[in-house]
């Protein structure tokens, strides 16, 4: 086994040769370098874009979750307001409010006058007279006579003017408006 010894002269010559050759061998053409740069940049932008998308999606998810929560809360509020409205409109509450403003309960005769259909009354009249008349709408009650509220109370022109929307309803309206906003 003999080891081939390289003389320093040879070594220098070889390295010199290789140095002379290396720019030709090792250097890539500019277009390749540009392509590599472009690919690198593309990858970088891709990563950047992906990261941005990831964080954006996280952000949207959070917003979505908040909106969903808000929607649930609004739905709950809606139900609560509906319930409050029903409480305010319950016959017992209306009766209390009516009594507060001095309305009185209607008599059976008032009730029946309202219920009696005008057509049947007119038709009886026409039958008796023997000529055809156009059925005129009969006033439900005389203007000075009290009319009925939902709870069966009297309404007169005087106390109708006194009726104000109950505080609860005003509050409800405000709440609804703010909820819509």
């Amino acid at each position: 086994m003999s080891r081939k010894r390289i003389s320093p002269n040879n070594q220098t010559r070889n390295s010199k040769q290789s140095n002379r050759r290396s720019p030709k061998r090792g250097s890539l053409p500019v277009r390749y370098r540009l392509l590599a740069l472009f690919c690198g940049l593309f990858l970088l932008v891709g990563f950047f874009f992906a990261a941005r998308q990831h964080f954006a999606s996280m952000d949207f998810s959070m917003k979505n979750s908040q909106l969903r929560k808000m929607s649930d809360e609004l739905e709950s509020d809606k139900r609560r307001l509906l319930l409050a409205k029903e409480i305010a409109l319950s016959p017992a509450e209306i009766k209390k409010a009516a009594q507060k403003i001095g309305l009185k309960a209607m008599t059976a005769a008032n009730n029946i006058q309202i219920a009696r259909p005008t057509e049947s009354i007119n038709s009886e009249k026409t039958r008796a007279v023997g000529k055809v008349e156009t059925a005129k709408p009969k006033p439900v009650a005389a203007p000075n006579k009290p009319q009925e509220t939902a709870a069966g109370e009297k309404l007169t022109a005087k106390n109708v003017a006194q009726i104000k929307a109950p505080d609860v309803l005003v509050k409800l309206e405000k709440k609804i408006e703010s909820a819509i906003k």
Partner: peptide, 16 residues
């Protein structure tokens, strides 16, 4: 009956 019948829009059949 006197409250319910008018509410149900039942036409009276006798005089008051």
């Amino acid at each position: 009956a006197e409250q319910v019948l008018p509410e149900l829009n039942i036409a009276p059949d006798t005089d008051i």
